[in-house]
């Protein structure tokens, strides 16, 4: 999980992800960030995320991202 936080902080250094319960609704991430995160996760965890799993609900929180990475076969 700390690796995910590192990726998020590198991508959006101006955002405080710890104070948000929904990154998308709170405006911390947008659809461009989602694309960047998919690429970062695929590289970091050597996985392929199914295109149909690239949905906003999988990027609203660290927990949701962990579930997505696990679903895509990543060890986390």
């Amino acid at each position: 999980m700390s690796e995910i936080m590192e990726i998020l902080s590198e991508l959006r250094p101006e955002c405080d992800f710890r104070s948000s319960t929904n990154f998308m609704e709170d405006g911390l991430l947008d659809s461009f960030d989602v694309v960047a995160l998919v690429d970062a996760f695929e590289r970091a965890y050597a996985i392929k995320i199914d295109a149909l799993d690239i949905l906003p609900e999988h990027f609203i929180s660290i927990d949701a991202m962990v579930q997505l990475i696990k679903k895509s076969g990543g060890a986390i």
Partner: peptide
């Protein structure tokens, strides 16, 4: 734009 974000998007997109 933030350099990291822009660079990553340039590569991915």
């Amino acid at each position: 734009m933030s350099t990291v974000r822009a660079k990553r998007l340039k590569t991915v997109m």
